[in-house]
Write a protein that binds this DNA or RNA. Structure first.
Lengths: 207, 207, 207, 207
DNA sequence: AATGAATGAGCCTTCATTCAT
DNA sequence: GATGAATGAAGGCTCATTCAT
């Protein structure tokens, strides 16, 4: 009850920021949505930027953390990759997820601000680490870290493209056609197959 | 003389828009760079958005077109893919290229506006078509178009990630480490190997 | 405990008001300095202006009063004038005096507010009266009060100029040069000599 | 006609600034008075402060300059001093003078801003120089410059007190009584007599 | 008695746009 | 054809004040 307004503002801010970005979003709109006074932002956060950082922070703090103790590390590595992709694609593409949390994180990935550093530390970093570990099990043991990284980016890039270039994709192959691709299961299958083949080739080449 | 000003404005607009984006760029800055009057934009283009579209248009019109007659279609398909990747990565990553043309196109890919449609028609589309044709030669002939598209996105996604998520990448693995990856030759080699393995696997699976 | 906060606020207010003036000072800064809540000002004083008046009141209440019983009225009038000037200049110019009391009074003299009336009654008035009495002893006995007043203003004006137009003075004759004048002894000597000559002339003329 | 608005704004700004000071004056009020748009200030001057400086500049530029060639240097020095005082007091006290020019200059003398430096250079400085020259003719020739300065401040101080401490004066001796003193002729006579006696004493002492 | 939270009015500034020449 | 001048809407922010506890 006491800091209900503060909460409402962060929530509204996340909503608006995730849709319009930092510059385009206005404090007035945020406060309108939060049914709060414009001055409340200044009171609770100091300024617009701090509010933005706060929203980003909440976005990743309230996201399901990568709990390594819960990760099925005993699964075969290829299954782990499949699982990883499924989770990642679900997070990014699932239109059922109502909140603005992921949307804001994604926006921050495209337009990093001062909030990005912490986002990388607390959200992106751990996930990236996990992916690298999985890949390492699928790659030659003596492969230099840099090459593992290249593979990780290859995996990630194939997912991100659907999130960040959706409008271009819709124009490119037709709206319906593109939207039909937004099927987590199908994409998971395709990308994991595609990647596993690439990884296997790297293994063979190393022999 | 008469439309020299117009030209200067479009050029300055491309410069500024590509650096700051549509909203952040101001007409005053553009006109300052173009040594023109603030009112000139509205006089010549009507409004800011039209000027933006004009700049995007020029960006892709003056880009080297994908001249299919010049494309070495007689090369082996895997060589073509390698070549395609090299060109794409060079365009996107080469810091030597001074102009704003590519930068603006890339920005439009991330934040599509009304200008995007034409950009897809005149710039992205043809390149995407070319890629799909190359891939079709490397994939089972009876593969449905939708699956070819999936492969095309897999190829493109691996390239775009370096362009659009550079800041995150730098934070993720360290500035120097990440910049060291920005080597067109290395990336071309990695991505083409990775993709060719994936494509080969799709061929085998179809047997 | 109960009105300790109140005291702290008045003290902080005097500090801040004396440095920044009424408008420029903010309740937040005052309360920050007093380690009190922003609402405390309105709670204890009603509004900002009342607090200001309170600070001015304390400034002159806690100032050393002109205790006529202690004033060496038996001294020769010219010595009394010299003493008066020395006290006045010391109060106004002595940089050693740390408190905000005089500073606030001086500010109020330059920008009178509603607090001024009481300040005149309790602080300035008595001092002015004393000066007039001293001058009357040095002027023709039948001189009209209005002319005595003129002389009093002449005396005061010569002192105030150093307090209120210091910045201009520094620009006018150079910073170091001007600051060198800020020597109470020197100024006392000069002004008293100057004035005594003027007073003597008035006496002679009256003969 | 062309920059009529600009002129109107400076004029209105001078009016408002001279009455309310820099902080208290609002662009809105100034533009309201000038019948101009708020944005016009930004267009013509960049910001509020620059406008203020501009107003101060005009205030002293349009003031009657101290044209040394027109100054009656052949008059006896005591007559020159009388004349100087008359002019100074007229400028400062004459309620007939309609413009805001002097009022703004006076305000700047009490609360110097960045505009003060130029004001001293172009307005106050020359007048001060003139006064010093006059005084030098009335003081021992070998008197150190610093002591001449002291005398100059004594002269000026007696004038300024009527301008800057009028409210206190009114409270001190009664409104009507004080306003009755605002007679340029009477003040000129008193101050010049008072000063000439002081100067004469300094001469005699030097013998 | 005292305070953290919230408010509303207002300020300076910015910007794309329009107007008058 | 082209521009300097002017505009109105809006934005972020500040501040004294009030409210609810």
């Amino acid at each position: 009850m006491t800091d209900e307004t503060r909460e409402r503002i962060v929530d509204a801010a996340g909503e608006v920021f995730s849709q319009k970005g930092f510059q385009q979003a206005t404090i007035r709109e945020i406060c309108g949505l939060a049914e709060a006074n414009v001055a409340a932002v200044n009171y609770h956060f100091g300024d617009k930027e701090t509010l933005y950082v706060e929203a980003v922070k909440r976005a990743h703090c309230e996201s399901v953390p990568v709990d390594r103790s819960e990760w099925p590390s005993d699964l075969p590595a290829d299954e782990q990759l499949r699982l990883f992709l499924e989770k990642m694609l679900t997070d990014m593409l699932d239109r059922e997820t109502p909140g603005w949390h992921t949307a804001l994180i994604m926006r921050e990935m495209a337009h990093p601000t001062s909030a990005c550093e912490e986002l990388v530390r607390g959200y992106i970093g751990p996930r990236f680490e996990l992916l690298c570990e999985i890949l390492r099990a699928l790659l030659p043991q003596d492969m230099p870290g840099r090459d593992v990284t290249l593979h990780a980016f290859s995996v990630i890039g194939q997912c991100l493209v659907y999130r960040f270039h959706r409008p271009v994709g819709r124009l490119l192959i037709g709206e319906d056609e593109f939207e039909a691709l937004f099927d987590v299961e199908r994409l998971t299958r395709h990308i994991s197959n595609f990647c596993l083949a690439g990884l296997a080739a790297a293994r063979e080449e190393a022999l």
